[in-house]
């Protein structure tokens, strides 16, 4: 349980805090996946884990490995870039697929036209 690389005290506290914070944010996002009550509201939940959750843990590991000086930080940068680009793509595709299905089924919760809200505003 308590095996970990040996860092100076400040780095150990910093890395520990960042990692726990990142994990907590990811957990809040996943709780949102359970608690929010419609599909379109739930789509917002995973972005918490994919932004600050991933960010916290990656910055923690960057601090850890740059203090240890064991390897370059390219993996963290790559993972961060990859997650920032891919998560929106998945969520957008999923939302559009779901909107398409809801429109085909005539679900009243989704606007049948993209302009619904504009028309409502302009009267």
């Amino acid at each position: 349980m308590s095996n970990a690389p040996l860092l100076p005290l400040w780095a150990a506290i910093l890395v520990g805090t960042l990692v726990v914070l990142g994990a907590a944010i990811a957990l809040i996002g996943s709780i949102g996946l359970l608690r929010l009550n419609s599909f379109y509201a739930r789509v917002h939940a995973p972005t918490l884990g994919a932004t600050l959750g991933v960010g916290g843990i990656l910055i923690g590991s960057m601090v850890c490995f740059s203090v240890l000086q064991s390897r370059p930080l390219i993996h963290e940068v790559l993972i961060a870039l990859f997650v920032t680009i891919t998560t929106p793509v998945t969520l957008m595709l999923l939302a559009r697929a779901s909107l398409h299905r809801d429109r085909v089924e005539g679900n009243p919760e989704v606007p049948q036209s993209d302009l619904a809200s504009l028309e409502r505003r302009d009267g």
Binding site: S2, A4, P8, G16
Partner: peptide, 14 residues
Amino acid sequence: PLEILILGWSLTLA
């Protein structure tokens, strides 16, 4: 040592 304990337990918690 304390440093390893801190990091180890925070990793476990995470």
